[in-house]
Design a protein around this nucleic acid. Sequence first.
DNA 1: CCATCGCGGACAGGATCTGTCGCCGATTGC
DNA 2: GCAATCGGCGACAGATCCTGTCCGCGATGG
Lengths: 320, 320
Amino acid sequence: MVDPTSRALRLLSLMQGRRDWAGADLAGRLGVSLRTLRRDVDRLRELGYPVQARPGVDGGYRLAAGAALPPLVLDDDEAVALTVGLQAAAAGADAGMAEPSVRALTKVVPVLPARLRRRVEALQAMTVPAPPWSDGGPAVDPSLLVAAAQACRDTERLEFTYTAAGGRPAERLVEPHRLVPLGRRWYLVAYDPSRGDWRTFRLDRMAGLRGTGARFAARPLPAEDAATFVRAGMDRFRTPTLVEAVVEAPAAVVRDRVGRWVRVTDEGPDRCRLHLETDDLDWPALVLGAVRAEFTVVAPDELRVRLAEWSQRFARAVAG
Amino acid sequence: MVDPTSRALRLLSLMQGRRDWAGADLAGRLGVSLRTLRRDVDRLRELGYPVQARPGVDGGYRLAAGAALPPLVLDDDEAVALTVGLQAAAAGADAGMAEPSVRALTKVVPVLPARLRRRVEALQAMTVPAPPWSDGGPAVDPSLLVAAAQACRDTERLEFTYTAAGGRPAERLVEPHRLVPLGRRWYLVAYDPSRGDWRTFRLDRMAGLRGTGARFAARPLPAEDAATFVRAGMDRFRTPTLVEAVVEAPAAVVRDRVGRWVRVTDEGPDRCRLHLETDDLDWPALVLGAVRAEFTVVAPDELRVRLAEWSQRFARAVAG
DNA sequence: CCATCGCGGACAGGATCTGTCGCCGATTGC
DNA sequence: GCAATCGGCGACAGATCCTGTCCGCGATGG
């Protein structure tokens, strides 16, 4: 532990692993004198990491919250948990979080030791993403997501088999530009040299994605922003269904049960109203089942049909 | 950028942000000569981080997967995504991942800048954890989890109001030892000085948890392991219900729809069998609704009752 | 009041770091 | 093949730094 650089990293790691450290303790772990430890601490402070110190009999050093997150030193288990957690966040959940999650994954995944990668894969199968039935589309494979994001970042040409809405799979070789999460789906904005134009591709319709290793010079996108480019191309296709129902239970109770999934508005002491937007009617059926209270469907009519199906299927199951 | 230590950290950060870097590019960013850059790269290699270099006209430096994860340098958005993802992983999902997630959180949260903390809180409300109805017990607040884990790590006395199974809330002041996730619940193993004995506390029954700031000398736990200590104390209470159903659809289809939530075994070309364990019968009802196929319930009888309730409630909703 | 602990200046010897120069080997494109 | 490009490496000299030791100071808690 003679190199100051290595010591700085190790010092950071130690201070992340426990809050309070006595100076002598730290100096001992790093194999240096107290004076040198003080200098090392100074160095960390110069780098912007707020190391607090308290003199006195119960004093010590402590890493506090600062302006920026210090480099995180994680052990194996933590790295696995981090990766799986980020993958779940990227694949499901909120759009505002998905994009940074993928970005963080492109930092972690390429440097993840192979043994950890296997553990990530094993755990991933066990792990609960956003419910697979909450959206019509099939879920996107996180590794696909990361591979595409990396190609965008590294300006590396991408090859894949794409099955457009029409139905015929075709090979594509594109220059990836940016990944855009929109309404629980992921889109890749890319330049297609063979067609000489910009296109958007849905990630859940890609297969056999692989980097070619060939780099390219980035072109300017002929749009303000990748997200607006995607939106411009798909607005005409969107057909979300608005679901509305009245539930005979206090809004607080309903919010507690399903508030994360739908909007709940108050309608008196023992009644409230649910709103949600979806393109899969099984989803509101699940939600309405989970509220455990009497309810009536305001719209759409198709939902009533679907609920009747569920009701009859359940009745048959019980009778059988 | 004259300090080698600071340069090493910055170099690591740069190489995490993009895969391929030309030497001159890196040297320019760090404000040093090419020769010095090479020496810096050597230093990183000596620290165990595998920096690959390729000569030739398309060459460059690249950070590869190594034996250990290098310190992660994250920006604001990524740090927020990381925190939220880890919190979701800690609160829900798989027990094998929950504990390391909490451990990683105890490293991140204390050094998280305040402005990011607010964003984490805002996002957390929007984010989808494991379905709240998948377990009878109320979900554990991630911040409570982290606070308890930190107290364990820092051997800091903990105060909280505990409502035991009996029902009377009481103040507790304990020396926390370890946090144990067991069957979708969290337990704190701690020494209670006022009673002179070791106890386990359920985190979802705690309120107003706060650290006292006072440190204590760790005692040896009179058990092999904190997990076995918890298990020894609670085995007599566990009453999981085994659910079994036969579905009239190919196993592959059913696995695709609900395979993440239950075990599916094959029973011929168009029939399969579901197994799951729970203490909340609404949960299998949701799963059976999501399979979108005819089914019959093998066990338990109570589930048939529950399904009948759902069926009738849905029927009334449709009729109303 | 005292013990403990962090702070920081000074100093000297030694180790390290840096840029420059030169040359080599690998790779790619012509 | 040949040239251009790029990383690797050894050597060198001067500047810089790093380290341990010694010292007194100030804050904290009992």
